[in-house]
Simulated scan of single mutants.
Amino acid sequence: MAKRARIQCINKTDRPNPHERIRNVGGQNSDGTQWKQSVDQTIREIESDEWEFYVNAGGHTVEVIVAKHNGHKYIKTVADGLHPDNLLSLPECP
């Protein structure tokens, strides 16, 4: 069974394409420490079923999935259409 983690922040790139704008995701562990990792690592962990990630969007838990656009893999929530808006609206990670 996959472990679960809530994504609470992101770091953006300077790219205008929304499918390439997120560099890192992060959150807080149960012990209060912060975690942060690359989107590439997050994609690998989702695809290997090692981890499941989610965000809290408007009081609802929304799952993060791997999507592909023009051959480029990226992450988005299942509630989003083509653009990863729920993730892009998160605050910047420290």
Rank of each mutant, 00 (worst) to 15 (best):
M1V: 12
M1Y: 07
M1A: 09
A2V: 04
A2G: 01
K3G: 11
K3C: 10
K3Q: 14
R6N: 15
R6S: 13
Q8K: 08
C9Y: 00
C9A: 15
N11W: 01
N11R: 07
N11Q: 05
K12P: 00
N17W: 03
P18G: 10
H19Y: 15
H19D: 06
E20A: 13
E20L: 15
R21K: 14
R23C: 10
N24C: 15
G26I: 05
G26M: 01
G26K: 02
G27K: 02
N29D: 11
D31R: 03
G32V: 07
G32C: 05
Q34R: 15
K36A: 10
Q37I: 11
Q37W: 05
Q37G: 06
V39F: 06
V39S: 05
D40F: 12
Q41S: 15
I43W: 13
I43T: 11
E45S: 11
E47Y: 07
E50V: 13
E50M: 09
W51G: 01
E52C: 04
E52D: 10
Y54L: 03
Y54P: 02
V55T: 14
V55S: 03
N56A: 08
N56Q: 14
A57V: 02
G59V: 06
T61Y: 04
V62L: 06
V62D: 15
V62C: 12
I65M: 04
I65S: 02
V66H: 06
A67N: 12
K68T: 15
K68F: 05
H69L: 05
N70L: 09
G71Q: 04
G71Y: 04
Y74E: 04
I75R: 03
I75G: 01
I75A: 02
K76R: 14
V78I: 06
V78R: 07
A79P: 07
D80F: 08
D80C: 05
L82Y: 06
H83E: 08
D85K: 13
N86T: 10
L87V: 12
L87C: 10
L90R: 09
C93W: 03
C93P: 00
P94V: 13
